[in-house]
Nucleic acid binder design. Structure first.
Lengths: 190, 190
DNA sequence: TTGTAATTAGACCATTTGGTCCAATTTGGA
DNA sequence: TCCAAATTGGACCAAATGGTCTAATTACAA
């Protein structure tokens, strides 16, 4: 499944043959089909396991926390995800970009409920004046977008900056900048 | 090429057959191969044209402008791109996510020079105190990430919010929120 | 009208690939 | 030692597909 994940994320599902997966996993093609009856079945299992990893960090924050701290921490966790699970991030990205033919059902309900919770908390923070007026949905989307971008578009980022998240210093500066942009914005405070 | 773009962005290159493209374009398969000697050739031409559209709005701002206005306008232009060219955005996304095997050369040099310019301008703004301390690269990446996210992940966004950028009100609220988050941040001003 | 370019239909082929089936071998635990 | 599970090799097949080639037809401009 690890081999499959890696190849799928790089070449797409249609661009990956069972034999390539077998070779990469150092097993025979027969053996792959001994455990997965289909390529599609294999894909589904890969995607399913990926979803667990991917949705876990979504469950973090609650009303009692300080919003700025909570958001800063959330950004950090998500950026670590991008650093530590780039293949997962990319495959998830490709799946969603292509319309998530399988994911859509499995994704819609857990995702919306998870988000509803977060949205409620953020909305509460805003009402208490602990956050500026912001639509919770767009805030969450923004954080997702930026953090995942560093995994999904790492080729582009590498091309432009010559660095990636595995570089410790780059990771730190990335994190700090994202947190600053989201939390403080770029307009100078007077 | 329009048909190809559409199918490529939805099913990937490997997941799209020449015949499907021909059918969608209302021509014969023979005719497709009359104008494009290869599927790869077709793909390259599609990608090349896409790049023009995609890099054009990058050329906008200069030092004389007011930074906040310039950034706000830039975000608007990029979000309009996401709304008006979703297929282009998605195909570009998939290409880069997969490592941009062809794009990497064609992309690296024009992209870096374009960015160098923007980075220089932003850096100047920061030094003049017209912007908060921010790394120009991360600022640009953040804007890209968020705006493209609304095109590339529209399925997810639709699943969660039930809306997309073609909805006028949703587009406006999205734009305002992104501008606010990037420019002002979410920490309340005292 | 005429000649060239555009377009099509379709035969055809080689290759890839997903998947089946089976016989043989290996592994590892009881 | 023994047996079931795991693993492999490989033959094999059908379907999809990229691509070639040719002959025929259509469109169109001079």
């Amino acid at each position: 499944m690890k081999a499959a994940l890696d190849l799928f994320s790089r070449n797409g599902v249609n661009g990956t043959s069972i034999e390539q997966i077998a070779e990469k996993a150092d097993v025979s093609k027969s053996n792959v089909l001994y455990y997965f009856k289909n390529k599609e079945q294999l894909y589904i299992e890969v995607i399913t396991r990926l979803l667990e990893i991917w949705l876990k960090p979504l469950q973090s924050f609650s009303i009692e926390q300080d919003p700025i701290e909570a958001l800063a921490h959330y950004i950090k966790v998500k950026l670590e995800l991008s650093r530590d699970y780039p293949a997962e991030s990319k495959l998830f990205c490709m799946e969603v970009v292509q319309g998530a033919p399988l994911l859509i059902q499995e994704l819609e309900s857990p995702l919306t409920t998870l988000i509803e919770n977060k949205v409620a908390v953020i909305k509460e923070w805003v009402e208490q004046g602990k956050l500026a007026e912001v639509d919770p949905y767009h805030l969450i989307f923004s954080i997702w977008a930026i953090t995942q971008h560093y995994a999904d578009f790492n080729v582009q980022i590498q091309a432009v900056t010559g660095k990636n998240l595995n570089n410790r210093a780059f990771f730190n500066s990335t994190l700090i900048n994202i947190q600053n942009i989201i939390l403080e914005g770029v307009r100078p405070r007077v």
